[in-house]
Structures are given as C-alpha cells and as structure tokens.
Design a protein around this nucleic acid. Structure first.
Lengths: 237, 237
DNA sequence: CGCTCGTTTGAGAGGTCTCAATTTGGGTGG
DNA sequence: CCACCCAAATTGAGACCTCTCAAACGAGCG
C-alpha cells in the first residue's frame, strides 16, 4: 500500500484513533486494489476473509434466495462493509459487486480481529461503526415496512437531492439497481417516477430535477428517524 | 439489585468477561424492575437514557410513521435492546412495549459508556453483541425483500416449531403483533394461515401444530443465511 | 445501419390493504 | 351457572398496489 493511500485510510474514523504499531500490523497484509465496474467481489455464504473499505467508487450489497435477488444497500467512501461477518469469523450474509470503477482496501480478517483485541481505541471505533450500521439497518427496515414504494422513492429523491445540494443531480446507479434498493421492480420504479411527475420530479435519463421540493416533501414526509440525514450512517458492515 | 439477579446478569455473555470493579460500577445505578403486560417503556425519538436487558418475558420493538405502525423485532431473555442508541448517546429509533409480564434490567446509559471506555473485555463483548444485532437486522431485511407474506409465515412457523422441539407450540404473542412482525396485516395473516392448511399447519387459538413439516419446508425453503438458527442472533440492540 | 441493452409502456393476474360484518373466546357481573 | 360484553380473530367484498409477461422505444456502439 502506498504512503498516501495509508494516510487516507488513517484519516477515516475507524482507524484514526488506533496506535501506530497496530495500524502497521493491520495494513501489512492488506491490499489496495482497483476493480472494474460490475465485478462480483464475493458471494453470500462464503467465509469472511477480508474486511473491505471503499476508498473510491460505490459497492452494492445484495442477496439472493429462490431465484430472486434484492439489493440491500450501497457503500460509498469511506464506508466499510462486511464488518460484522469479519469480527464474528462468520460467513458473508450478502454478496457484493462493484457498481462503477472502485478502489477498495482489503484487510485480512484475522488481522482485524487481532487488532481488535490488542487496541482498545480501535475496539471503541469499531463499536461506533457497528452501531451506525445497525441503526442504518433499522432505518431501512422501517422505511420498507412503513412506506409504500412511491413514498420510498420520494424520500430517496429528497435525501439524495439535498445531499448533492444542487437543484439537479445524477442517480448514483442504474434504475434497475435503484428499484431493487427501494424494494420494487424496475417496471414499478418507472411508474413511480411517472406518479411523482405532478410533484415536480423531472427525469431525464439518470438526471433528476426536483422542481417542487416542498410538494414532494409533503408526500414523502421525511423523518429524521427513518431517513439518513447524518453522515455517520453512510457506512455499512 | 439482589445478589441472585446480579449473578444472572453476570452470566450473560455481554457481562461475563468484564472486571469485577467495572461490573460493580455499572450495576450500582441500575434498576431491576418488573413491568406488567402492554406497558410502553419508551418512545422512538426520546434520548437513550438506559440500556435494557430482558431477564424475563418478552419485549416488542416497534416504530410508527404517518399513522402507520410496524413491529420491528422482539427481544427475549437474555437479550439486550437499544444498545446502539446508548453507545452513540443518540435517541431511540424504535419504541418499546412489554408483551407479557417482564423483568427488565435497566442500566444507565452514561454508566454503560463509561464501562466501555474502561473495560476492554466489555468492549469486545459489545462488538460481538452489536455485530449479532446487525446480522439479525440484515436477515430481517432479506426476509422482507425476498419472501412473500405466506413464505415468511411458513419460515417463521418452522423456525419457532423446531426451536420449541415439540410437535405443537404456542405463539409467543397475539396474532396482530405477529402479523406486524411478519410485515402484513392481521387480516392477511389469518388468510395466510388458511393458505398453509394444506401444508399441515393446524391452528387452534394460539396453539400451532405442524403435521407435515417437510411439506412446509418445501414451501418456506428455510435458509441459514436468512433464518436465525443460531442462538447468538436472538438479542437486539 | 442495425445491433444490444436498459428503460418505458401496456395488459392481465395475483397479492395486499381497507372497510365492514360476523364469529369466536375469555372475562365479568348478575 | 349463565348471560353479557369486549377484544381478538376471521371472513367477505372491493379498491389499490405490485408483479409478471410482452412489446415498443431509445440511446450507445460496432
């Protein structure tokens, strides 16, 4: 791993508090690798060999059962994923694939567990990360159980739009993936966009413009206890 | 807190490894209280003042939005709940109510955070607990997104049935709550039970008998990566 | 130009929700 | 012990939502 990469890793909250010595041990066996788009990183059920940290790009975590597939979440810099499987020395519950081109840090699972036992600050940071992941998962479940498909889309657009700041923004993934994230089919997502047209949602390819955010908010009823408005919950484990 | 209660708390994995001194400090300000059925313990949005440990009985965690309500999960002995909110010093994401009569241990949030920073073994146990909670939440989301209502009920019955061991068993909560846990309405749950009758599911009040578990399993297709078959994932934070 | 792939649109089936009425079971009071 | 009442559970009907299958559309690319 190059020095500047190591520095970038060091800056992320999960690693910033740990001792120099343990950090060195942890990154000794680590890879920093670049992946092309749409590459499968691992499949659910496999043993958790690595902890992943997204340095660049975006990763989709998804699961399959009985010939059906569903996206669970996405991870962006500098979130980690599959943390829980690593600390438990268990198998992955989800599969992972790159969405765009990605730079990923891969830390050997055994090294992570070793670092946990020897560095208290790292353990504390891990607790913070894991609790953030858990809270994000709870929010996702509330979103699924309490809102309809159209409401979920509206809330997602408001959230993504306000995060980008500008009046228009790009969807971070193709619509098929977005549909799966929102718990619906691609066809239904298309119809949901049409339903939101009277609420000022203008779609042009993957570019979205929200012409009447207030109207949209009246429909979506964004809530701090469901929608992620704090940066802490972006990562995933 | 009485000595025998303290001993029971001490035996749970979360507290068994910590030092005597920190354990004493943690339990000094603690309450062990018995609650009647159907009591609201706290509401989502409130500040997390206590970490709860279920010593006896069962607690339901649920959430509301826009006049709709959904059960998220239940906690039984000796699971903890609302752990993530406590360590983050954040507000509760879910409300909690007792299902039956409950004996609950309440640990002041500040004491828990103090114990975390001073006791490494406790921090490690906390990581294990939190990762278990997170994995349970991921499984719940997979269950919701990948299975239909009838399939979720079938999987739930198989799981609860094999856990109890006997051929017949009691539902741990009323059917309205069960319906909400499974992500459907009470009316729909009733119809789902009727759908499962040809698969050997015999319902008599709250007593369930599975006359043809193999047939039911062919429908439910239980999977280790969705259904909780290990005891570690029973708790919740 | 014509291919491919993602998206959109349409139609029909199936699933789920709401509202309402009925039935059931448990507890209370006469 | 029985009548009554209340809450939970079931059943039915209709509307709504979502899914599947199929076809049409459109952009990007060889």
């Amino acid at each position: 791993m190059r020095m500047e990469d190591a520095a970038q890793v060091r800056e992320t909250p999960l690693f910033s508090g740990m001792s120099e010595q343990v950090f060195d041990a942890l990154t000794t066996g680590a890879f920093l690798q670049t992946f092309p788009p749409h590459v499968e990183l691992f499949r659910e059920g496999e043993a958790a060999d690595f902890l992943y940290v997204v340095m660049d790009g975006m990763v989709e975590l998804y699961a399959a059962w009985n010939n059906r597939e569903a996206a669970i979440t996405t991870v962006r810099p500098t979130g980690t994923f599959i943390l829980a499987a690593v600390v438990r020395d268990a198998c992955y519950l989800m599969s992972a694939r790159t969405l765009g081109r990605c730079r990923l840090l891969m830390l050997p699972a055994a090294s992570v567990r070793q670092a946990l036992t020897s560095d208290h600050a790292f353990a504390i940071a891990m607790i913070d990360e894991l609790s953030g992941c858990y809270r994000a998962a709870v929010k996702a479940q509330k979103n699924l159980k309490l809102r309809t498909g159209v409401e979920r889309l509206a809330a997602y657009l408001l959230q993504t739009g306000t995060r980008s700041g500008a009046s228009g923004f790009e969807l971070p993934c193709d619509k098929r993936t977005l549909a799966s994230l929102l718990g619906m089919t691609a066809e239904n997502l298309s119809r949901a966009f049409a339903t939101l047209r009277p609420y000022g949602v203008i779609v042009s390819g993957s570019t979205i413009t929200l012409a009447a955010p207030d109207d949209l908010a009246r429909l979506a009823k964004p809530a701090a206890l469901i929608d992620d408005l704090d940066p802490a919950a972006l990562g995933d484990g």
